[in-house]
């Protein structure tokens, strides 16, 4: 047993109470200003704190690699890794080809082709996960000094991973597509119906606001619509597993299985400037940022 603290002087207690009340009052009266201030100061602090994170992540990565290459089944692991990469690549290509075929059909019919400019991307590594249990996020080893900003889209070759919500000088926090607080504009590839993709509490995703007359069915693929947010059109989000139609509801919704296994993602691409084609076929420039 240990004696509890009796040493705090009356002055220290009063000071603590004063600081506590000031902080509370500050966050109630000037929430936005104080948040911005702490976020600004947090840039360099985050840079300093990112070094121990990188160190532990690299040690952890080294141990993991040693284990998988020398202790676990070496050949099977390599082969599996190769096949996974190929599968992800092919899934990504397949999605892009489907989208390209669909777009070609529509655009050929209109006798007008509009080229879609390739977005600028930054490669980043996943070095950690959220510090709490309330959000599904990943931590990237690139930050504001590398050009990453809030609201930028994050993808792998297989599809959409999530969206950047916070940055420090050396790190970025990505809210995953499976988090209930995330919302991405989606499009059903076969029917061309649009909706909003949100995460669900069990860690999957849901497409909301599908028109009642849509003939959407299980197995349909959902891609980004490119209308709002940091994603260009045609990136795979997931595959519909079940459709939900409620009596008297104005819209139907569908459960999705995300294309990317967000628990295993190691390297990602951050979309720096998603371009959308203008009426004359030229790029319109970066999309406007979504309001938080």
């Amino acid at each position: 047993m240990r004696m509890a603290n009796f040493r705090s002087s009356y002055g220290a207690r009063r000071l603590a109470l004063g600081v506590f009340l000031s902080v509370l009052l500050g966050f109630f009266l000037l929430p936005h200003q104080l948040q911005t201030l702490f976020q600004e100061i947090g840039g360099p602090v985050g840079w300093v704190l990112s070094w121990p994170i990188r160190l532990v992540a690299s040690v952890q990565g080294g141990i993991g690699e040693t284990w998988s290459h020398y202790v676990a089944l070496q050949d099977v692991d390599d082969e599996n890794r190769q096949l996974r990469k190929e599968l992800e690549l092919l899934q990504g290509q397949n999605s892009q080809l489907r989208e390209a075929a669909s777009a070609t059909e529509r655009l050929t019919a209109l006798l007008e082709f509009k080229a879609q400019a390739l977005p600028t991307m930054i490669a980043a590594q996943v070095i950690g996960r959220d510090t709490g249990n309330w959000y599904r996020t990943i931590l990237l080893n690139k930050g504001s000094t590398d050009g990453i900003q809030a609201d930028m889209g994050v993808v792998t070759s297989a599809g959409v991973v999530g969206r950047v919500v916070k940055t420090t000088m050396a790190t970025a926090v990505v809210l995953l597509v499976s988090d209930p607080n995330n919302a991405i504009a989606g499009l059903i590839q076969r029917t061309r119906d649009e909706g909003i993709v949100e995460g669900t509490t069990p860690g999957l995703a849901r497409l909301k606001y599908i028109p009642l007359l849509s003939n959407v069915r299980a197995g349909d693929r959902v891609v980004t619509s490119g209308l709002v947010g940091g994603f260009p059109r045609g990136l795979a989000i997931g595959t519909i597993t079940t459709i939900g139609k409620e009596e008297g509801a104005l819209f139907q919704s569908a459960e999705l299985r995300p294309e990317v296994d967000v628990n295993r993602v190691e390297e990602v691409l951050v979309i720096q400037s998603p371009y959308i084609p203008g009426e004359d076929g030229k790029s319109d420039g970066p999309l406007p940022k979504a309001k938080p």
Binding site: G42, T171, N181
Partner: peptide, 17 residues
């Protein structure tokens, strides 16, 4: 609270308070 909120999507004020 502040340091942990820098590496999380958690609201900064809520985490600090």
């Amino acid at each position: 609270g502040w340091a942990m909120s820098l590496f999380s999507a958690t609201d900064l004020a809520a985490s600090m308070v």
